[in-house]
Simulated assay, not measured.
Amino acid sequence: MTKSKPKDVPPGKRKRSTREKLLDTAGELLAEFGIDRVTTNLICERAGVTPPALYYYFADKYEVVVALGKRLMDRQNEALERWLDRHLDGGIRAYAENTLELLRETAEITEAEPGGIWIERALHSSPRLEHVRIESHRYVTDKLTEIYVPMLPGYPRELIWLRMRMLVEFGYVATELLHAESGMEREAILAETAQMQRLATLAFLD
């Protein structure tokens, strides 16, 4: 019986597969060793690829971590967009009352990502990486502002943006306590964060 010839994998799919494998591996190593001890050679060795394969996509390990950060932020932002669509008909009050849902989903996405917790920490600890976090948080702020402005005709856009920017930053910092503070219960952190964001959002309606 003649064996069928293996189908050729389109070059684009091969490249994407290798890139994702490198990112998954780098995330796992980040969790094991921390950003200072991770090297491109270590990533290649664990991923089972040659250094030229890694350098096809990334100039150095910081570019790898930047890509990890952008992938994580993109996945979190996709959850935000789904949440905004889900509660659009309920207006400001619906968003305020369902903040816990978004916080929980965002935390779960981070925890499911290879090295997700350590990626977040790296985005805070390195000046070479913080732009990824800031750009993503500004994107989230812009999305929220875009939704809220038509619902709040009495408020200047600049004030809405400022409040949203501060709430976004607070939400991310507070949820990072889930993995940084052993003396606080997970649900207590999520619930208290949601309540504080709820009150700040409802203040628009006072």
Rank of each mutant, 00 (worst) to 15 (best):
L100C: 11
L144K: 00
A122W: 00
P127E: 13
A122Y: 01
V140H: 03
I160T: 04
H179S: 14
M151S: 00
M184G: 00
Y155H: 05
T145A: 02
K143W: 01
Y172Q: 10
L88V: 03
E97D: 14
S136N: 12
G171N: 09
T110D: 03
E111W: 08
A96N: 01
Y172V: 15
L102D: 01
G116V: 04
T110Q: 15
A96C: 09
I160G: 00
E169H: 04
R128S: 05
M166S: 09
E120S: 12
Y139C: 02
A180W: 00
H179C: 13
M151T: 01
E181C: 11
Y148F: 03
L102Y: 03
R121D: 00
I92H: 03
T110G: 11
L88E: 05
L152G: 04
V149K: 13
M151W: 01
S125W: 02
I92T: 07
H179P: 02
T175I: 10
E181W: 12
R128V: 08
H124T: 05
E185G: 11
R163V: 14
P114H: 14
I109G: 13
M184F: 13
I160M: 00
S136Y: 10
I134D: 14
G90M: 14
G154C: 04
D85C: 11
L103Y: 02
R138K: 15
H87S: 08
D142Y: 07
M151P: 00
L123M: 15
E135W: 02
E135P: 11
E101V: 13
A94V: 07
N98W: 07
M151Q: 01
I134G: 05
T110I: 15
S125K: 13
Y172P: 00
V140R: 10
G91T: 06
L167W: 00
E169T: 05
L129F: 14
G91Q: 07
E101F: 03
F170Y: 07
L167V: 04
T175W: 00
E130F: 07
E185Y: 02
E113Y: 04
I92M: 07
D89P: 04
R104N: 11
T141M: 12
A122M: 01
M151H: 01
M184W: 12
H124A: 07
Y148N: 01
